[in-house]
């Protein structure tokens, strides 16, 4: 065990997977000498050489599409998209090529690649360094979309993603990179994809989130205990697509109340899918309307501190929603 930040955990997963499997290679902007915009690939060029840590041209389209081809030819590419805000040039590669290759070839051609994407706000990044955009990919069958909330999961899920035979979109929240530390094994382990986790057990109300807002949800749960003696069950979705619905449905059947929290825009965010699933499959379990705590439907995130604060999810906003649900 070692105490690691989220970024350490990512780095450690990449190093271990590259050492384990010679077909794993990295490609992206500034990932070589510089070790990545956030230093996720620090030291890997020195350890594995230029052929396996490729500083690409400034072209997201070819970063992902060349990874698709390489994966078809037996490699395990891990392309990096510096900011999800700049993923749009790679949208065709991801949504039309990678996501559908297995389907349109009836399983005869596949591209196991893991696209690492840095996302999220609350760092004063402004409109083009703060977006989440997970919904774009959740809406695209054929992709596995993963968004870990803590260092332990970041390492275990990244290793699982690299070994998985499907194209995986791996969302890393920039605010998590250095804001928390925890014990992470230095030995080999994986965390299963497509499996949510109960991040905190409780019996009174279910709060469902992922990524950075999962940490805020845990803070809100603690406040609820101290303020009201309420036990909030916190579900960490971990994989956003395909969604593990059983874990949160099981929880709602126990608590009868649900609040969904995410940083993406409200409309058609994962909260909409979670709420619809609960309404369809657990309607009789509910004692209160399902509530959502999300960013508003505006471009995310305006730069000025007050504007940003207004838009982003906070522990206080989550507490308010939990209280509203309980008061219903």
């Amino acid at each position: 065990m070692a105490v690691m930040t989220y970024i350490d955990a990512i780095n450690s997963a990449l190093r271990e997977e590259m050492a384990r499997d010679p077909s794993v290679f990295l490609i992206g902007e500034d990932i070589g000498k510089m070790g990545g915009a956030f230093r996720a690939t620090k030291g890997l060029l020195e350890e594995f050489g230029e052929e396996r840590v490729i500083d690409s041209p400034l072209a997201e389209g070819v970063i992902v599409s060349s990874s698709i081809g390489a994966a078809m030819a037996g490699m395990r590419p891990v392309p990096e998209i510096q900011f999800v805000d700049f993923i749009t040039p790679a949208m065709d590669a991801i949504t039309q090529q990678a996501a559908k290759l297995r389907y349109r070839s009836a399983g005869t051609q596949t591209c196991p690649l893991t696209v690492r994407v840095c996302y999220g706000g609350s760092v004063g990044g402004g409109l083009y360094h703060s977006q989440s955009n997970t919904s774009w990919f959740i809406h695209c069958p054929g992709l596995v979309v993963v968004a870990p909330s803590r260092p332990y999961d970041a390492k275990g899920l990244l290793k699982a993603a690299i070994r998985d035979d499907n194209p995986v979109m791996f969302f890393e929240h920039k605010k998590l990179y250095r804001s928390m530390k925890e014990e992470v094994p230095e030995t080999d382990y994986t965390v299963p994809l497509m499996k949510a986790a109960i991040a905190r057990e409780g019996k009174d109300i279910t709060a469902i989130s992922y990524g950075y807002t999962l940490q805020l949800t845990l803070q809100a749960a603690e406040q609820m205990r101290q303020k009201h003696g309420v036990e909030v069950e916190v579900i960490d979705l971990r994989t956003l697509a395909p969604l593990d619905t059983d874990t949160f449905l099981e929880s709602v059947a126990k608590t009868s109340r649900a609040v969904v929290i995410h940083e993406d825009n409200r409309t058609l965010g994962i909260g909409a899918e979670v709420a619809a699933t609960i309404a369809e499959q657990a309607f009789d379990c509910l004692d209160a309307p399902i509530l959502r705590v999300t960013s508003p439907d505006v471009p995310l995130l305006p730069a000025a501190a007050e504007l940003e604060k207004f838009c982003t999810v906070s522990a206080d906003k989550i507490v308010a929603a939990l209280e509203r649900s309980l008061a219903y």
Partner: peptide, 24 residues
């Protein structure tokens, strides 16, 4: 390669296969 309908997409995927050939 199974082509999609997106014009030119096959070129970039082909480029990735060429990258793999070189690495291998």
């Amino acid at each position: 390669i199974t082509p999609s309908s997106t014009i030119a997409a096959q070129l970039n995927i082909g480029t990735g296969i060429a990258l793999a050939y070189k690495m291998q």
